[in-house]
Amino acid sequence: MGRERKHPTGILNARRTWAEEKKHPAGIPLCPENMGKKEERRLDMERVYKTMRNIGALSIGVGIVVTVIGIAAGTISIINGAFLLKRKSEITF
């Protein structure tokens, strides 16, 4: 029989709203002085997860673009090689 922990969600939401309104010039929300270490760490972890999500999406996008460019370059190389082989009898030195 474990104890249930009650989280003061109203206080946390109010503090989160306060933190979202006050931001560092770099866009990072500032934590109020009376915020506890747990809440501050939770906000930090949320920022980390959001950053990781954005970087992951960006990485997938870059991977798709690089793949498409690679396929296009390979196709063009094959076509040019076939064209050169077809016309090799016309080359004179």
Rank of each mutant, 00 (worst) to 15 (best):
T17K: 15
G56M: 04
T51D: 04
A57W: 01
R15V: 11
L12K: 06
R42C: 04
L30Y: 11
N80Y: 13
G27C: 11
G74L: 03
T17Y: 11
A73G: 01
A73E: 15
V48S: 03
E46C: 00
R42D: 09
N80S: 14
A14S: 09
Y49V: 06
I11E: 14
K22Q: 14
P25M: 02
I64F: 10
L12T: 06
T17D: 15
G10P: 05
I76W: 11
A57N: 11
I64D: 02
P25Q: 04
K23A: 03
D44I: 08
I69F: 01
R41M: 14
K6Q: 03
A72R: 05
I60P: 00
I64K: 08
N54L: 14
P25E: 13
I60K: 09
A82F: 08
P32S: 13
I64T: 07
A82C: 08
A14G: 01
G74W: 01
A57D: 12
P8R: 15
T17G: 08
T75D: 15
E4H: 05
P29I: 00
I11W: 15
I64R: 07
L12H: 13
T67H: 04
P29T: 01
G81C: 05
T67Q: 05
R15Y: 07
E20D: 15
R16A: 13
L43Q: 11
T75A: 07
T75S: 13
H7C: 03
L58E: 06
M45V: 07
L30E: 05
M35W: 01
R15C: 14
G61V: 00
M45L: 13
G74M: 04
G56K: 03
T75M: 05
M52L: 07
V48L: 11
E39K: 00
E40F: 08
H24E: 14
M35G: 00
M35E: 07
N80A: 15
I28N: 13
I11H: 12
H24Y: 10
S77H: 09
I78D: 13
G70I: 02
R47D: 01
K50M: 11
T17S: 13
G56W: 02
T75F: 12
K37Y: 08
I11C: 07
K50A: 12
T17R: 09
R53Q: 12
G74N: 14
K6W: 08
V62T: 03
S59H: 07
V65W: 03
F83S: 08
I28K: 15
A82Y: 06
V66S: 06
A73F: 10
G36W: 01
I11G: 01
T75L: 12
I11R: 12
I69A: 06
L58Q: 05
D44S: 09
A57L: 13
K6C: 02
R42P: 00
C31E: 10
V66A: 03
Y49D: 02
